[in-house]
Amino acid sequence: MGKVNLDHFKELLLEKRQQILNGGLLNSTEDLHISTDDLADEADLAQSVINQQVTFNMRNRERAKLRQIEAALERIEDKTYGLCEDCDDPIGQKRLTNQPWTTLCITHAEERERELGHFHSVG
């Protein structure tokens, strides 16, 4: 991949990282506390627990994406960015534009999805 493309994707990754860090989701703790008013009503308590679970899931996804972005930035530095980790073929520009942290070409990404789908449907 040429230097111009690498610079473009590096900027894109840095922008995505900044969006996550500035989004406040990783730092907010407001919805993680259960109000003593909610303890008296089971429905309110249940809703608070559901809200907490949703927030935990969103935070986990954002943290995972942040780790993927950091790993992609490291691949840019070590000159392996844009290569599929399974076959070492270049990952398509459109795929990298849509998901700049990806490590798989579309063929291998679809293969993994099928494997995971099969695994989940069996279990």
Rank of each mutant, 00 (worst) to 15 (best):
D38T: 01
T29D: 14
E15D: 12
G23P: 04
F9K: 00
F9M: 00
C84L: 03
E74N: 08
L25R: 03
K94I: 10
H8Y: 15
D86P: 00
M58C: 14
I20G: 11
I20F: 06
D88Q: 13
I91Y: 04
I34S: 08
Q53H: 15
K16Y: 08
Q93E: 10
R75S: 07
E42I: 07
G24H: 04
V54S: 07
K94W: 02
S28R: 11
T55Q: 12
K94P: 04
I34W: 02
Q52A: 03
T29R: 14
L12D: 05
Q18G: 07
L66Q: 06
N60E: 13
Q19V: 06
S35M: 09
Q68A: 14
G82S: 06
E74W: 00
I50A: 12
K10Y: 05
D89V: 06
L26D: 09
F56E: 10
N22P: 08
N51C: 06
T55V: 14
G24D: 06
Q52C: 03
K79C: 08
R95N: 03
L32K: 01
D37F: 01
S35C: 07
K16T: 01
R67N: 13
V49N: 10
T102F: 08
Q47M: 10
L45Q: 01
E15V: 02
A43I: 14
Q19K: 14
G92L: 00
I20D: 05
L21H: 03
C87H: 10
M58K: 11
H33N: 14
N57S: 15
R17P: 02
L96M: 11
K94S: 10
T36Q: 12
K79E: 15
V49Y: 11
E30C: 02
R63K: 15
Q68V: 00
K65P: 04
D44N: 12
L13D: 08
D89A: 15
N22S: 15
Q19E: 15
I20K: 03
L21G: 04
I69D: 02
L14C: 06
D89F: 07
L21Q: 13
F56I: 14
P100L: 06
L45K: 02
I34G: 11
F9Y: 12
D88V: 00
Q53L: 11
I34Y: 12
D41N: 15
Q47F: 01
